[in-house]
Design a protein around this nucleic acid. Structure first.
Lengths: 336, 336
DNA sequence: AAAAACAACGAAAGCGCTTTCGATAAAGAG
DNA sequence: CTCTTTATCGAAAGCGCTTTCGTTGTTTTT
């Protein structure tokens, strides 16, 4: 490994001057700067991130805490798309992402402790349980942080406009002539779930439709299987809904399965509208009409919010709400 | 930030002894060890990873280089599942993953340089182009490395048994009575693509079926869109195949779209068998019969191979081939 | 020509931790 | 009771880099 001392020896300057040259300090002449840069290139010099971080107390890394619900981890397509966009954004500023485990070399610690140990400059959390003590611990720490997909945390947050999304879905269904509209919700303990319920209610109110208790069923944690179960409850009602707004695409896919299993047709017998617009949505059959969340923008906004804080070196409490969009495909039809 | 010096001051021992106590050296008495550990807990001491790494030259991090083909990045479900499994495995040993960007603070460098800068202990690459110079650069470096999904690299590799997979698919199709079997292949420049072609040929030979040139079409880089295009070529033939083995689930989904668009039915008119068994496979319609790659095992094996090298502190050239499995769903039927 | 300002460089301390090598005291051996 | 072991501990150097502050020589000001 070639160090600044090697460069110093080679060029005849001191390590101080080498360091300054490499970091573009003004008190080193252009001539020597050039010499040093050339020597660095020639000898294949690379700075050592650890030494740099130790000295500057800036690591150029961002810790990411990922949802581990349902054992999905990195595999969840929605969260994944967001992180990918986030990564691309912060990468441009020179940050690397570090996916931390919870065990410091065998002994297990909290996420925060792990991130402190790694001395990350900021944290992004993308996980659905708003009451997770681990998340709270991070939010209350001094490390700049941005949380995605939660609404009311004591820190910067970014989430998409779930209320509007719910409203949009109901409105669309109503515009197709549906009146018996049901909702398979996400768990109300999860912010996204709760908000989409609100949106559903708001939409129903707007179009003057009553909300029947038996028409809103808690689908839990957005999985395909839970969607299937929830849909079956709806299917067992003596008066079935003609349309259902499902709070997540995975659940919607499960719901569609349930409907097909009962021998009913989508959208002729029941219209389904999902939420998220995961890649899969365009390829299930019928293609799923859904409320699209702008994962690119969510990720980028989160990146920007975090970078702002890291630059200012202080925590800020900004809230960014990302607009949603109705994507009409084939799973809804008008009622005649 | 509380350091070992703070602990030293508090306990009255030297920083040396504190460090030793924390690292379980034998030359510190149980009594003082206990005192120090207690003080550490009380004061909320956490070691500083950068200082540790600088001193020990071990960073407990693994760099991951991810496929960037088709701009998919972290979103690719197959690669993702593997990395997730890999992460879980190495996490148990205390390693964190770092997803590196290619720019060291604005100036862009190679992946290897970036990993060198970060002083990772090992590298995992999961990317499809076997000739990528960036990959070669890493393979030829001194850093322990494992590459996934490539066959003949000058380093440790793990990939699934693509030849057997291809053979399996053909065999299954043949067992259903098909004789006009086509193959939408992945690009032969990509190892997985090439191998599945081999498997296809091997299978055809085994069951004594001739391979028609027009029946094997290059689908390129495994995308849905390319699958659609490739399938259309097959559909335009005057004598259409009755079954097609598609080298990837995404392409298979594209192929299914193409078939449906032509007004044909799956599997009645054409049987389709995919490759990978991505999550989506079980939810498209008809549910996709496919050759499943064991992403869990692939990830774990890669983790093990890398850890072995990091422990031995030398590069090794092990090859691990992971078995595949035929998953029968609904997209294939027998010919009558 | 003396004073003030500036330009270019380096010594040294510090970031937090590990590790070698002694030093000291207590324990065991003869 | 002296000599060797053994058990505990600490001084100090080192990991690679940054940054403060001082030094020296040169240029500008008056």
């Amino acid at each position: 490994m070639v160090t600044i001392y090697d460069l110093a020896k080679k060029t005849g300057f001191s390590s101080t001057t080498v360091s300054k040259a490499l970091n573009n300090y003004t008190d080193v002449s252009e001539k020597t700067k050039k010499k040093i840069i050339e020597a660095a290139a020639e000898m294949g010099y690379l700075p050592n991130a650890h030494a740099q971080s130790l000295s500057t107390k800036k690591s150029w890394t961002i810790g990411v805490m990922f949802a581990e619900d349902n054992e999905v981890g990195m595999k969840h397509p929605f969260f994944n798309a967001i992180i990918e966009s986030f990564r691309k954004f912060v990468e441009r500023e020179g940050y690397d992402l570090i996916f931390a485990s919870r065990n410091l070399r065998k002994r297990d610690t909290s996420y925060l402790e792990h991130f402190l140990y790694r001395a990350v400059d900021g944290i992004v959390v993308i996980c659905s349980d708003p009451h997770d003590p681990q998340v709270q611990e991070m939010v209350n720490s001094h490390v700049p942080i941005v949380v995605i997909d939660m609404t009311k945390q004591n820190c910067s947050v970014v989430y998409s406009d779930n209320i509007e999304g719910g409203r949009l879905a109901v409105n669309y269904l109503h515009s197709l002539g549906h009146t018996k509209i049901a909702h398979i919700s996400g768990d109300p303990d999860i912010d996204a779930g709760a908000q989409r319920i609100k949106g559903f209610e708001k939409g129903m109110k707007e179009v003057n439709l009553p909300i029947r208790d038996e028409y809103v069923v808690n689908g839990g944690f957005f999985s395909i299987e839970e969607g299937r179960i929830a849909m079956n409850k709806l299917l067992d009602l003596k008066e079935m809904p003609t349309a259902v707004f499902v709070s997540g695409d995975h659940m919607a896919i499960g719901a569609m399965e349930a409907i097909k299993a009962k021998g009913l047709r989508i959208p002729e017998d029941i219209s389904i509208i999902g939420y998220d617009d995961i890649d899969m949505a365009a390829y299930v059959s019928p293609k799923l009409t859904t409320v699209k969340q702008d994962t690119d923008l969510i990720g980028a906004s989160a990146g920007q919010l975090l970078i702002n804080q890291m630059n200012e070196k202080k925590k800020m409490k900004t809230t960014e709400i990302i607009p949603v969009e109705l994507i009409v495909r084939e799973s809804c039809t008008s009622i005649n």
